[in-house]
């Protein structure tokens, strides 16, 4: 003990930054035609997941595509009592506002949210700061000298961080696992003296598939 008092103080703005981890379930993969079926949002401050403050809801779409049931397991019966996007849009904005969005394939989720806000609420949604854990991971691996040219999948990243959760795969579980991965990534980013600007720069991806 002693001697490491310095390490106890906040070293990086990443430790104070407010994040929010998001994950969606959708009726399909095309944001132009498909709709959001469920959304999960978990707030984080630095490496601390505010698990108790998570938000999750199913959303009733205009059109339900039966083919997508095999991906998300959500049935028409589940969503019949669910609110529409119009009813919860404001709440989502409140939760996300001012925070850095974190996800897996974050841009994909952002495109869906953009489209939903535009079509259903006539609102412009364009978060400035977001990051994708797959991009962060690729950056961390490149830092170690590895040449990453392919996209890392979710299970591989989970394995890298030794995370195993028996409940998958719904939006809330995936958002939580994403948060646990990101928590460890922040710790590594701090070791490389990265700041929030670095995070947003390395975590950004221009195309989502």
């Amino acid at each position: 003990m002693g001697g490491n008092e310095l390490s106890e103080v906040v070293q990086s703005d990443l430790e104070k930054t407010e994040f929010c981890v998001i994950d969606l379930e959708t009726t399909g993969l095309n944001p132009k035609k498909d709709e959001i079926l469920a959304i999960a949002i978990i707030p984080m401050i630095g490496m601390r997941i505010h698990a108790g403050k998570h938000y999750y809801t199913l959303i009733k779409p205009k059109k339900f595509r039966y083919k997508s049931i095999e991906f998300h397991g959500i049935c028409p019966r589940d969503i019949s009592p669910a609110p529409s996007f119009e009813e919860i849009g404001e709440r989502i904005l409140e939760l996300i506002e001012g925070k850095v969005l974190i996800g897996f394939a974050t841009l994909f989720d952002i495109e869906f949210l953009k489209k939903s806000f535009k079509d259903k609420m006539k609102k412009k949604f364009s978060p400035e700061r977001y990051a994708d854990i797959a991009e962060i991971e690729a950056w961390l691996l490149r830092k170690k000298g590895m040449a990453i040219t392919y996209r890392l999948d979710f299970d591989t990243i989970m394995k890298t961080y030794g995370i195993s959760e028996s409940t998958r795969h719904d939006a809330l579980s995936d958002a939580y696992i994403t948060a646990r991965i990101f928590q460890k990534q922040i710790s590594k980013l701090i070791e490389y003296n990265a700041t929030i600007f670095d995070l947003v720069r390395v975590g950004r991806r221009l195309f989502y598939f």
């Binding site: 490491n4 390490s7 106890e8 490496m47 601390r48 997941i49 505010h50 698990a51 108790g52 948060a179 646990r180 928590q183 460890k184 922040i186 710790s187």
Partner: peptide, 15 residues
């Protein structure tokens, strides 16, 4: 119980 729960990551050596 978990309504107020936080999940924290501590790096080795952290108090």
């Amino acid at each position: 119980l978990i309504d107020d729960m936080e999940v924290a990551f501590y790096k080795a050596g952290k108090t």
